[in-house]
């Protein structure tokens, strides 16, 4: 520290940059693309395609459990995944069951019902094609309980109506009665717990999507324990791309993940720039120290 004061060259000052300058540049890197509407498209990778194909190859009418294990804080990343999964499942004629391990989840699934299902699939019937079961406390304990008995935990749907009145609940006794579990998560409990507590002990196919933070953690589970998964916003954008290929009508619809990739690109470039500057100043400092 003291050394920096005596001979403060430009690279030393840059090396000890006030972090608030970094903060400001990051803010600008996000705001500017948002204001000028900069977008990009990304083709789907294998790990995303595997999951897409698994959903695509299920016979029409299959039972798909979608778990909303996230809250508004990660909705920018997770909600586009939920939207893409839902569009795909309903397009294929699957039945979807919306539950949540997070208390904040049902609000996200409700938003999905209001903004996607009711708008894009008006002929789908509540209780026949999709059902909103809501949140239960208990984290992995809940999954454990659902694995041995689904109906004792979920006695009613979110609105409080007895599930026995809904035709699509016929034949659902345990988690094993679902053809696939799509767990959209952003932490604990989440996708990992679905693999550990449902997929592995119950031999149920699990797929899903997580925030980019959680994604590297799931690679050891693929392809043996997970069909595939979407890693962060990019994963969601890739699933959107796959969906666009299979169902051309989505080429013209709003693609939330793809449009928010713009700020990503600029922010990444800013950080890459900072890493380069950081190393450059470090090398200069080291060279200067060697001279003395």
């Amino acid at each position: 520290m003291a050394e920096a004061n005596t001979g403060s060259t430009w690279f030393e000052r840059l090396g000890a940059l006030d972090r608030r300058v970094i903060f400001l540049l990051i803010a600008l890197a996000v705001i500017i693309p948002l204001v000028v509407h900069y977008t990009t498209t990304i083709p789907a990778s294998r790990i995303v395609l595997d999951l897409y194909e698994a959903v695509e190859n299920l016979p029409s009418g299959s039972k798909v459990l979608i778990s909303f294990d996230y809250g508004p804080s990660t909705a920018p990343e997770n909600q586009p995944m939920a939207t893409a999964f839902t569009r795909h499942c309903l397009e294929k004629g699957h039945k979807i069951y919306l539950i949540a391990l997070w208390a904040t989840g049902p609000r996200q699934s409700q938003q999905l019902i209001d903004e996607v299902i009711k708008v894009e699939f008006p002929d789908k019937v509540y209780g026949e094609d999709y059902i909103h079961l809501g949140y239960k406390a208990g984290n992995q304990g809940l999954i454990n309980a659902l694995l041995s008995d689904f109906n004792s935990m979920y006695t009613s749907d979110l609105a409080g109506e007895d599930i026995e009145g809904f035709p699509m609940m016929e034949g659902i006794g345990t988690l094993k009665d679902f053809d696939i579990i799509l767990a959209i998560g952003s932490g604990f409990p989440g996708t990992k717990e679905w693999v550990q507590f449902a997929g592995d002990p119950g031999d149920i196919p699990v797929g899903g999507g997580t925030t980019a933070v959680m994604a590297p953690l799931l690679y050891p589970y693929y392809p043996k324990q997970m069909l595939g998964f979407l890693g962060g916003l990019q994963g969601a954008a890739e699933y959107e791309a796959a969906l666009m290929n299979g169902y051309p009508k989505y080429r013209t619809m709003t693609r939330r993940a793809s449009t928010t990739m713009g700020p990503q690109v600029t922010a990444h470039l800013v950080i890459v720039g900072f890493i380069l500057i950081g190393n450059l100043t470090y090398l200069m400092e080291r060279r200067k120290k060697r001279k003395y």
Binding site: E128, E161, D162, G165, F166, P167, E170
Partner: peptide
């Protein structure tokens, strides 16, 4: 509850 039961049967 009463309303939904017959509907459920028909749907089934």
């Amino acid at each position: 509850g009463m309303r939904s039961t017959p509907t459920a049967i028909v749907l089934l």
